[in-house]
Design a binder for these strands. Structure first.
Length: 762
DNA sequence: ATTCCTGCCTTTTTT
DNA sequence: AGGCAGGAAT
């Protein structure tokens, strides 16, 4: 059944929902954004809800922009503009900018990113004289973040061990520093807003009543703090409308709690539930592949994803030799697509981790195929950009120590480490900001006169800049600052290619400030800085005529006609599944694979390499278990020429040695789901007459041209291998046999002859 | 004070 | 492989 607006029954039900809590389980490609935007339009147009009393929250700026534009299309720009649409972080920043003073967040607050956080923690470790080996900043911040996501402060966290006590101490000092700096980190944006809303101030009361309707996208990715925020914002009327898909929950590592969506109806007795199960996006084969991947997942809310679309073509699974071979395949897909007259914008290449993009990029560049990389090396994290922003932030908010320390000697002003160490120690002692210490003669009394003079000059420059830029547009201010402090001159004098690139980046930064001025009603420098902090490169619009490269995480919420998923190997995807020391979460990896598969509309290509460079050293890989989970009748296997050559070269023994059983030789690499049990006589392995001896595995479906392109370990003399007991060793010889052996030298053990299947590539 | 070198450690994934 | 922190050399 379809309504006049073209909605199916459950969609229409969700859209028509007016009051009370409701959870929508929205399968991939089931039209959830449509449901949210239509519902907002419905509330405004049919139920006379004031647009500014509606809040719609997303996780990414991109989703927010998309939602806003669609709402404006439905209800008109004038009303649409009034709706509060934004990410969790941007929404909170907006609230805090206005009402944050009640929770010690000044109007001019700055947002510390991960780098800033680390700088600050490192300083605290020094201050508290803690060993940064034993208490690495990264780990400390991980802990602090975790606590914040659970809304615990340094005083309320669980301190069972000595290390916990240390963490609490660092945490406490960290918060003090943030407060003194007038800064917040990403988690604080949520935490502070929650604090504000929990308060009894008039502002808090008003805010709790402000929103008649709260709508949330990607609800499965909320953490406890975010969930609490939503409950507070909707506490008055309970009009909380959440949309998500527990199968697509992929952010547990940053605190997302899948139970928020799975237990929604338990948390809100009387809440309604709607399931969107019809997929409009993908071919039948792709939907079936996706189901195959997600079905083994545990604890799912039962859903029946289906599609009325054509079955389409099978999923292409391609065995490649290594990452370069893989890039060649990606190129081939792109070329085919282009020759068929498709826009390159409709092609995406996915990978599990950003590091995989390099080889793909090189290949695309060599072939002059236009591409864009989403995420990865982030523009706003480049040193020169951070420097420029640090100047701006130090001018807007001089209490921000991290920024002042960053730029105090860039370009070099003769204010060195020793000098600054003393200043910082003094500032810590007196509990004043670094800036205050620098501008206070008494605080500098212990310094050499020459150093004091240079510091005084720096302070004067900064004070001058604050005055001069006060009335300037952000772009002009940035330009002025960079010129005045000699930053541009420094780069120009350098003259190197890198310096040229840095100048270009700074021009781009100024350009982005100019863009901002065109968009915002009140383009102040502070607001520009805020936007920069909350902006990720992921938010760029899709360029015409360009292939897109990105991680699967970045791909969530997007769709492409053609998707190439690279690196479909065990230990790559699922990531680190072979590392027993890590508490990897294969469940989450599975959901991530589901996300990847469901991005494709028409064509899905999976590649897996038998060998790959990781951290500089070569590593072998077997196909990902997720490939096996795709129903055999919707996948088609093949291998590249390079792969064919490689396997022939290594695996086919000379005729005289006869009957080398390949299937057995690779057994330990081949069956990720069965724990190491080698395929034995239980699996009859007599090859069909047409095939070459030993060229088939019997537990697989094969098609026309498929000479079984499994990933093969290619152990050769000189390779570094790893043994459970002997550790790492160098291969000296390989003995072909039905169960091949390897002679290798293990430091501390000498030469050992071991079965190949007990080795892994080091 | 600056620059260069070396050794370590990294890598999920993002606001 | 690459980036970054700490240390040595200039």
């Amino acid at each position: 059944m379809v309504t006049p607006e073209g909605l199916n029954e459950p969609q229409a039900e969700a859209v028509a929902h007016v009051a009370g809590p409701l959870v929508v389980f929205a399968g991939a490609g089931s039209g959830k954004t449509r449901v949210i935007t239509y519902r907002i339009a419905n509330l405004v147009a049919q139920h006379g809800v004031a647009p500014w009393r509606i809040l719609a929250v997303t996780f990414t700026n991109k989703a927010a922009a998309e939602m806003r534009s669609r709402v404006e299309k439905l209800v008109g720009a004038e009303l649409g503009r009034e709706v509060w649409v934004g990410t969790f972080h941007a929404t909170c920043a907006r609230v805090l900018r206005r009402w944050g003073s009640a929770v010690d967040v000044p109007q001019s607050f700055v947002i510390y990113d991960t780098q800033d956080q680390r700088t600050l923690v490192n300083r605290i470790l020094k201050e508290l004289q803690l060993d940064d080996k034993r208490y690495p900043a990264r780990a400390m911040l991980g802990r602090i973040g975790k606590e914040k996501q659970e809304l615990r402060g340094p005083g309320s966290m669980n301190t069972a061990s000595y290390d916990d006590e240390i963490a609490a101490k660092v945490f406490a000092r960290y918060q003090e520093h943030l407060k003194a700096a007038g800064a917040v980190d990403f988690d604080d944006l949520i935490v502070k807003t929650v604090e504000l809303l929990q308060g009894e101030s008039a502002d808090a009361k008003q805010l709790r009543r402000r929103f008649e309707h709260v709508l949330v996208d990607e609800f499965q990715d909320t953490n406890f703090a975010q969930y609490t925020l939503l409950r507070l914002l909707s506490s008055e009327r309970q009009n909380l409308f959440v949309v998500g898909d527990d199968d697509q929950s992929i952010y547990r590592w940053r605190g997302a709690d899948i139970r928020n969506i799975r237990s929604f109806t338990a948390d809100f007795p009387g809440a309604r539930m709607v399931k969107l199960e019809q997929n409009y996006r993908s071919t039948g084969a792709i939907v079936r592949a996706a189901l195959g991947v997600i079905e083994p997942s545990l604890g799912r809310v039962p859903k029946e994803l289906w599609t009325a679309n054509d079955p389409g073509d099978p999923i292409e699974v391609i065995s490649v030799r290594d990452e370069r071979d893989e890039a060649t395949i990606a190129l081939r897909i792109v070329r085919e697509s282009r020759e068929a007259g498709h826009d390159l914008r409709e092609i995406a290449i996915f990978y599990r981790v950003n590091a995989q993009s390099r080889v793909l990029e090189e290949a695309l560049r060599a072939e002059r195929i236009p591409y864009q990389v989403v995420g990865g090396a982030k523009f706003y994290e480049r040193a020169e950009v951070k420097d420029a922003l640090a100047y701006a932030r130090a001018i807007v908010n001089s209490r921000s120590d991290v920024d002042v320390l960053r730029i105090v000697n860039v370009p070099a002003r003769g204010i060195g480490q020793t000098t600054m160490d003393r200043v910082v120690a003094g500032a810590d002692e007196q509990r004043i900001s670094v800036w205050d210490a620098l501008s206070d003669d008494a605080a500098l009394a212990a310094l050499a006169p020459a150093a004091r003079k240079r510091i005084a000059a720096f302070v004067q420059v900064m004070l001058g800049l604050r005055k001069e830029t006060e009335q300037m547009a952000p772009s002009d201010a940035l330009e002025h600052i960079l010129g005045r402090v000699g930053y541009v001159d420094m780069l120009k004098q350098d003259g190197s290619v890198e310096a040229e690139g840095r100048l270009e980046n700074l021009r781009e930064l100024v350009g982005s400030a100019r863009d901002f001025e065109g968009q915002d009603a009140q383009p102040t420098l502070a607001l520009f800085l805020e936007r920069v902090s909350l902006q990720s490169d992921t938010d760029d619009l899709r360029d015409q005529g360009k292939v897109t490269l990105m991680t699967v995480h970045a791909a969530k919420g997007l769709e492409y006609d053609t998707v190439v998923m690279s690196g479909m190997e065990e230990d790559m995807f699922p990531y680190r599944s072979l590392d027993p020391s890590r508490d990897h979460d294969v469940e989450e990896e599975r959901r991530l694979a589901y996300v990847a598969v469901t991005r494709a509309r028409r064509r899905l290509v999976l590649t897996h390499a038998s060998e790959r460079q990781v951290f500089g050293s070569s590593r072998m890989g077997r196909p990902s278990r997720f490939i096996n989970d795709i129903p055999a009748d919707v996948r088609r296997h093949s291998q590249t020429e390079a792969m064919r050559v490689a396997t022939r070269f290594v695996d086919r023994p000379p005729p005289s040695s006869g009957g080398f059983d390949r299937a057995r030789a690779v057994a330990p690499w081949r069956h990720p789901t069965s724990a190491g049990g080698p395929p034995s006589s239980a699996r009859p392995s007599s090859p069909p007459p047409s095939a070459e001896p030993g060229s088939r595995f019997v537990d697989r479906e094969f098609f026309d041209d498929v000479p079984e392109g499994e990933a093969m370990p290619r152990v050769k003399r000189g390779m570094l291998v790893k043994h459970e007991v002997f550790g790492e060793g160098r291969v000296l010889a390989v003995e072909e046999a039905s169960d091949p052996k390897v002679v290798a030298a293990f430091p501390g053990w000498g030469e050992k002859r071991v079965l190949l299947r007990f080795l892994r590539l080091a």
